[in-house]
Simulated scan of single mutants.
Amino acid sequence: MRIPDDIAVLGVDNDETICRLSEPNLSSLNQNIEQGGYDVAQLIDRIIRDPATPREDVMVMPTHIVTRQSTDIYANGDQHIAEVLKYIHENIREKISVDELVALVPLSRRLLETRFKKSMGTSIYDYIIQTRIEKVAQFLCEGMSVSEAALELGFSDIKNLSRMFRQLRGMTPSEYRRHVLHPER
């Protein structure tokens, strides 16, 4: 099987060395290890203060997926949709129009949109927006500012970006960045 053409592969722990040495580079769940450390320290403090404190598991929840080549496109049985997905992911930093995508495959616009929606469960336009917002979230998790992430992805209007981000993520990009980078606050 070819990765990511036939199957997408996602790892855990986001160990940069392992992820970058894999061919193709491995996408991975990023876990909030720092917050887990704080939670363990609080548990240890409670146990030291009161040895009768019940022991409990400390859960470290994932914060986001760090997308690399192993999931850049989703495994898709429709080769035309796979080609469109690949183009979207390779060119996500550019403005992509549906007409550009129609030119890639031997399908009419209507047929492409119908097959895409059936395969992906969303419209092409919404998929592009969701993918761009996911990329913004990834950049924010990597420490970029909102304006840097917006610039990197060609968003000319930060207010529009914030509105779309809030619709999809339930918070503004600044709130998301603060939440991911400083969860204890």
Rank of each mutant, 00 (worst) to 15 (best):
P4A: 07
G11N: 03
D15N: 09
D15I: 09
E16C: 01
C19T: 04
E23D: 10
P24M: 03
P24A: 05
N25E: 15
L26M: 05
L26A: 04
S28A: 13
S28M: 05
L29R: 02
Q31F: 15
N32T: 10
E34S: 15
Q35V: 10
Q35R: 14
D39P: 04
D39I: 01
A41N: 08
I48Q: 08
D50H: 11
A52S: 09
T53M: 10
T53D: 05
R55I: 13
R55F: 14
M61K: 02
T63V: 05
D72P: 00
I73Q: 10
I73D: 02
Y74T: 06
Y74E: 04
N76F: 04
H80A: 10
E90V: 14
E90N: 08
I92G: 14
R93G: 12
E94W: 14
I96C: 10
D99E: 11
D99H: 08
L104R: 14
P106G: 05
R115Y: 02
F116V: 01
F116M: 03
F116K: 10
K117L: 11
M120H: 03
Y125S: 15
I129Q: 07
Q130I: 13
T131L: 09
A137E: 05
Q138N: 00
F139R: 02
M144P: 00
V146M: 13
A150N: 01
A150L: 02
L161T: 02
L161D: 02
S162T: 11
M164E: 11
F165L: 11
Q167R: 15
Q167M: 12
L168M: 15
P173D: 07
P173E: 12
Y176F: 13
Y176I: 11
V180Q: 15
V180D: 07
H182Q: 04
E184L: 15
